[in-house]
C-alpha cells in the first residue's frame, strides 16, 4: 500500500477547476431545489450550454474569451426560459421529467454529426483557451510561466489562472445567493417551496418568482460549465446524466438549503472520489480486492450511489443544513 500517493492525490482534489465547476453547479441546484423547491434534474444540460456556448463563440465566431463566456451565460438564461415557460405552471414532478429530457436533448444536439463543423461531435471542442490572435482565456493570464504552490497543491501558471478565475466567479455567486436569500425576495422563494398556493393567495406572482429562481440557478450551472471548459475542453461525454446526479450528491452532502453547503459538498465529493479511486486500486494492486485496478476504481461509483441513498435516508438536510428546514418526508 502506497499511502503517500493515496494521500497526495486525495489532497490534490481539494482545489481543482473541476471541484470549482461542481461547486458552482451545486450552488445552482441549491437555488433551484433547496430554496425554490424546483426539482431540476437537468443541471448537466445547463453546464453543457454554458461550456459549449463559450467554446463555440470563440472557435466559430472568433469572439474574445470574455464575450464567449457571456454568450454561455446568455445561453443558460435562454435554456432556463425555454424550460420554465411550459413547465413552471405544472406540479414540481413534471419539471423534473422535463429537465432530465431537455438536458439529454442538449447533449445529443452537441453529439450529433449533423453539426460537426460547429460542435466537433463526439470529439468535442478544444484549443479555444489559447488563441493565436491573443484573444484566448490563457492569453490574458496575468501569472508568469512557472509552477506555484507546494506539495500536492502545486499548479502550473495556466491552472493557477483558471483556479483564480473560478474562485472569483464562485465568490461572486456565493455573495449573490446569500444577498438574495436574506432579502424579502428570498422569503417569497422559500414560501413558494413550502406551498405556492398560499403565496399566490397573498398576492405574489409565483410564476415570475419561480422563473427568476430557475434563471439564476441555471446561470450558476452555466458558469460551472464555463469554468470546466476554461480548464480543459468540452465534449458531450462529460455532460451526461450521471454528472447531474454527482452534482445532486454534492448538494445533498453539504445541505440543499444552505449557502456554503454546496461548495463544501463539492469539495468532499471530489476528495472522497480521489481517495476511493486511489485507495481501491491500491487494494486491488496489493491483492486484497480480487479485481483489476480499473474495476476497483470504478467501484467508487457504486459507493457514491450507496452513499447518496444513505444520505437521503439518514441525513436529508446534509452536513450543514437545519434538519427542520429540509427533509424528504413531509
Amino acid at each position: 500500500m502506497d499511502w503517500g500517493s493515496i494521500l497526495n492525490n486525495t489532497i490534490a482534489a481539494f482545489l481543482t477547476p473541476t471541484t470549482i465547476a461542481f461547486a458552482l453547479a451545486a450552488l445552482g441546484l441549491a437555488m433551484h431545489f433547496g430554496f425554490a423547491g424546483l426539482l431540476n434534474f437537468g443541471i448537466a444540460g445547463f453546464m453543457a450550454i454554458g461550456g459549449y456556448g463559450y467554446a463555440i463563440s470563440v472557435l466559430t465566431f472568433g469572439l474574445p474569451w470574455w464575450a464567449g463566456m457571456m454568450v454561455g451565460v446568455v445561453g443558460s438564461i435562454l435554456f432556463a426560459i425555454v424550460l420554465g415557460l411550459p413547465t413552471l405552471r405544472l406540479r414540481g414532478d413534471y419539471l423534473a421529467i422535463v429537465t432530465i429530457a431537455a438536458a439529454e436533448i442538449a447533449r445529443l444536439m452537441f453529439l450529433t454529426t449533423a453539426f460537426t463543423d460547429v460542435t466537433g461531435s463526439a470529439d468535442g471542442l478544444f484549443g479555444f483557451n489559447t488563441r493565436q490572435d491573443g484573444t484566448g482565456f490563457q492569453n490574458s493570464n496575468p501569472f508568469p510561466s512557472g509552477d506555484y504552490g507546494f506539495g500536492p497543491l502545486s499548479f502550473n501558471h495556466q491552472t493557477l489562472w483558471v483556479l483564480t478565475f473560478g474562485i472569483a466567479i464562485l465568490g461572486l455567486c456565493l455573495w449573490l445567493l446569500w444577498a438574495l436569500m436574506r432579502s424579502p425576495w428570498g422569503r417569497v422563494i422559500k414560501g413558494i417551496r413550502e406551498d405556492e398556493d398560499a403565496v399566490r393567495a397573498l398576492g405574489k406572482n409565483v410564476f415570475a418568482y419561480k422563473m427568476q429562481a430557475l434563471i439564476i440557478g441555471g446561470v450558476f450551472g452555466g458558469l460551472g460549465g464555463i469554468v470546466f471548459a476554461a480548464f480543459s475542453n468540452v465534449s458531450p461525454g462529460v455532460f451526461v446524466t450521471s454528472l447531474t446526479f454527482f452534482i445532486w450528491t454534492s448538494l445533498l452532502l453539504g445541505g440543499a438549503a444552505t449557502i456554503l453547503g454546496p461548495v463544501i459538498g463539492a469539495i468532499i465529493f471530489w476528495v472522497l472520489q480521489a481517495f476511493l479511486s486511489n485507495f481501491l486500486s491500491q487494494l486491488a494492486l496489493s491483492g486484497i480486492l480480487p479485481v483489476s485496478t480499473t474495476q476497483a476504481s470504478t467501484l467508487r461509483f457504486v459507493l457514491v450511489g450507496l452513499g447518496l441513498m444513505l444520505l437521503v435516508i439518514y441525513r436529508p438536510q446534509g452536513i450543514f443544513g437545519d434538519k427542520r428546514e429540509l427533509t424528504f418526508v413531509k
Binding site: 413550502e194 398556493d197 403565496v199 397573498l202 429540509l326
Partner: peptide, 13 residues
C-alpha cells in the same frame, strides 16, 4: 384575500 380549508401554513418558515 382567502384562507384554505386545509390550512396552508408555510411549515418551514
Amino acid at each position: 384575500v382567502r384562507t384554505f380549508q386545509l390550512t396552508k401554513a408555510l411549515s418551514l418558515l
